Simulated assay, not measured.
Amino acid sequence: MIEVKNIIKTINHKTVLDNLSLTFETGKIYGLKGRNGAGKTMLLRAIAGLIRLDSGSITIDGKVLHRDIDFPSELGLLIENNNVLPEFTLRKNLLLLAKIRKVASPEMIDATIKRVGLDPTDKRKVRQYSLGMKQRAAIAQALFEKPKLILLDEPTNAIDIEGVKEMRRIFEAEKEAGATIILASHNPEDLSILADQVFNMEEGKLV
């Protein structure tokens, strides 16, 4: 359960989150809809603990972000400028990340890479990937530790039509496994097919 309560964030004298209150329940997919600059990505960043709020609070499973915890404990994140290191293979990226929490085994990593349609034995560096492959790699990074909270910013960008269907099936499977997913997308099909509830945002507010 995530409770976003009266959060405000101002950047360069512009209010990007404007007294926003939302609740996200476990085991559901939520969609965030709105134009560029509506506040969707900033809300994802706030829930991920990547920015500090001017006021208000975000509570995750009873723990207040930046008071009781610095970041959500089990978080999968795909957000703009996602840091899959370009000079390593995808498998090397995930093996390095796995050393932090020591949750994912090499077998889990290989299975996740295959699951998103990539090859764990591929020796190419991530910088050599096509745009669609890089997006699949970012999705693999978000999912490989089987997190309870998954935040996805435009996850189907640059992926072909069949790949988009494949990714949607993966997200639905994560929901069925008990994850809470918050998805920001300009693709109305992503939201209509996947989301249990859609929040429309404009200028940092719900509309």
Rank of each mutant, 00 (worst) to 15 (best):
E107L: 10
P106H: 07
E87R: 13
N36S: 14
A46F: 07
S73M: 13
H66F: 14
G49S: 09
G39Q: 04
G39L: 03
F88S: 00
K63L: 14
T59M: 11
K92A: 11
K92W: 03
I60H: 05
G39F: 02
S73C: 11
I100M: 11
E87S: 15
R45T: 07
N36P: 04
R35G: 10
L96G: 00
L43M: 10
L77K: 03
G34N: 04
K33I: 10
D68K: 10
D70I: 12
I60P: 00
F71Y: 15
S105Q: 06
D68E: 12
K92L: 03
L78Q: 06
G39R: 01
I69D: 01
R101H: 15
A48M: 05
D61N: 15
F88L: 14
L32H: 03
L95D: 12
E74M: 08
S55M: 10
R52K: 15
V103Y: 07
N83I: 12
R45L: 12
K40M: 04
K99Y: 02
P86S: 10
I69M: 04
I51F: 08
D68T: 09
E87T: 13
N81M: 07
R67W: 12
H66Y: 12
I69V: 13
N82K: 10
K40C: 05
S55L: 05
N36G: 07
R67K: 15
D54R: 07
L95T: 04
T89H: 01
A98Y: 00
L32I: 05
G62D: 10
A46I: 09
D54S: 10
L77E: 01
A98C: 08
P106C: 05
K33S: 12
A104P: 03
I100F: 13
E87H: 14
A46K: 02
R52A: 12
I100Y: 13
G56N: 07
D54H: 09
L53K: 07
E80D: 15
I69E: 01
A48E: 04
I79K: 02
I69T: 04
I100N: 06
F88H: 11
F71L: 09
S105M: 05
K99H: 11
S105H: 09
L78K: 04
A46N: 05
P86F: 08
P106S: 08
V64M: 12
N81K: 15
G62N: 06
V64L: 09
P72E: 07
G49F: 12
D70T: 13
S105N: 08
L65V: 08
N81W: 09
I51H: 09
D54Q: 09
H66C: 07
G56F: 02
R67S: 13
A48D: 05
L32R: 01
L77H: 02
P86N: 08
D61T: 03
N36Q: 07
I58A: 06
S55T: 14
N36R: 08
R52Q: 14
L44H: 04
G37F: 07
L78G: 00
R45P: 03
K40F: 03
H66T: 05
R101K: 15
R67P: 03
F71G: 00
G76L: 05
L96K: 01
T59R: 11
L78I: 06
L95E: 15
G37V: 02
V103N: 12
N36D: 12
R101I: 04
L85I: 13
S105D: 08
S73D: 15
A98P: 04
K102I: 02
M42N: 09
V84S: 00
N93M: 02
I100D: 05
I69R: 03
A48L: 04
